[in-house]
Write a protein that binds this DNA or RNA. Structure first.
Lengths: 206, 206
DNA sequence: CGGACTTCTGGACAGTCGTCAAGACTTTCT
DNA sequence: AGAAAGTCTTGACGACTGTCCAGAAGTCCG
């Protein structure tokens, strides 16, 4: 394989991947709006610049498309809070920033996150979803752990719970807030911030 | 005479309600097996002693049937842990019993609970589900609160978090354990017990 | 028994679904 | 230029969905 053909084939691959990403972005809009159960490939195509047939040109089937979508979204989502870790100077600041960031995510990206919860729930029923869902869940757990361990460092106190427990607690708080917030509860975000504020210090030895 | 509500107010109310419950029980089996998205009325009927047409004789539509089902289940589920509250003599015993009870539920009734999570998630998308889901969620929150406040009484220490926060934390722990457990992780239940063991004391002032 | 009512069946209807493939259009290569 | 490869549209397919309905079957009572 010469340098030229290598470059060419790579360019084609890039273009292919580019269109996949473009279609996945369209699909994400539709999925986050309707949820897994009610989203059809035709609906996805209608909210994009292409016809429904093209989806099978870029994705093997519906499952592959959806998994590609959620991975695309979570890849960006997973690094969102690292900025907070990087800039926080004190434990209290980290705690406040983290609580605020969760509330902002809940408010601005609520529809995307309900999609994530929807798909994670599908994994409870459909085995084919589990591998990918568990992998994403693992990266989220690590993201939370970076927050918690940084908070512990800044506090100078050791952590008393496992990464899994810490993640589960914040995930529960977020999920509850999301339901309340989408249902129109005006206090949902404040309750979330308060919950995080109270929960984070309890993960350390007092 | 085409409306279901007319039939309800007829003479044989008991028999009518009885059959509704019978059909709902069949439906629960199917729903907990397949989940909301993939359960059809024909599938439900096939797992019962009747044909698919009869479902529209006892329920207005699919949504009414499913909501009736989950309410039937949660009505029993919500009182399951009150036994623990009633018999616990010490805080430590309550803590251990509660952790064990959650693990047992996760193991034995995992498929039913994934259905609950599935429907609660649907409420994030479909507004018509929200009212019922929020109501059930509220009773679950109260159930957890009875545990936590009894634990606080037995410990002689005040609680530091709100009912919503306490519920969200345990719900997160349970949900995480359910996913792991259904995925075949042998440590899922022990992790759940450990998480509950660690979380419960942290809800009080040390 | 016979009629009135309730309960239940099974098929029909009008959609929607994922998937596929034939062909048209576009780009790239020789 | 034309051939080849890549990209996209369109229509079709069989299967499945919730809903409805005509009528069979069962139940009750005079």
């Amino acid at each position: 394989m010469t340098d030229v053909s290598d470059r060419i084939s790579r360019r084609q691959v890039d273009k292919f991947a580019e269109r996949r990403a473009q279609l996945a972005t369209s699909a994400l809009r539709t999925l986050s709006e309707l949820g897994y159960a009610r989203t059809s490939l035709r609906e996805i195509a209608q909210n994009s610049d292409f016809s429904h047939g093209v989806l099978h040109y870029y994705f093997r089937d519906k499952v592959e498309l959806i998994m590609f979508c959620v991975k695309l979204y979570k890849a960006e989502c997973v690094t969102r809070y690292d900025q907070i870790v990087a800039t926080a100077r004190t434990a209290d600041q980290l705690r406040v920033d983290f609580a605020q960031a969760l509330a902002t995510t809940c408010d601005e990206d609520g529809t995307m996150h309900r999609l994530w919860y929807d798909l994670r729930n599908q994994a409870l029923f459909e085995e084919s979803f589990r591998e990918d869902v568990l992998e994403i869940d693992q990266t989220l757990e690590l993201m939370i752990w970076r927050i918690v361990s940084t908070y512990a460092d800044l506090s100078g106190k050791p952590i008393t719970v496992s990464p899994a427990t810490a993640y589960a607690q914040f995930d529960g708080l977020f999920q509850q807030a999301l339901l309340r917030h989408l249902s129109g509860d005006p206090k949902a975000l404040d309750t979330l911030k308060d919950g995080v504020d109270k929960t984070l210090p309890k993960l350390l030895i007092p």
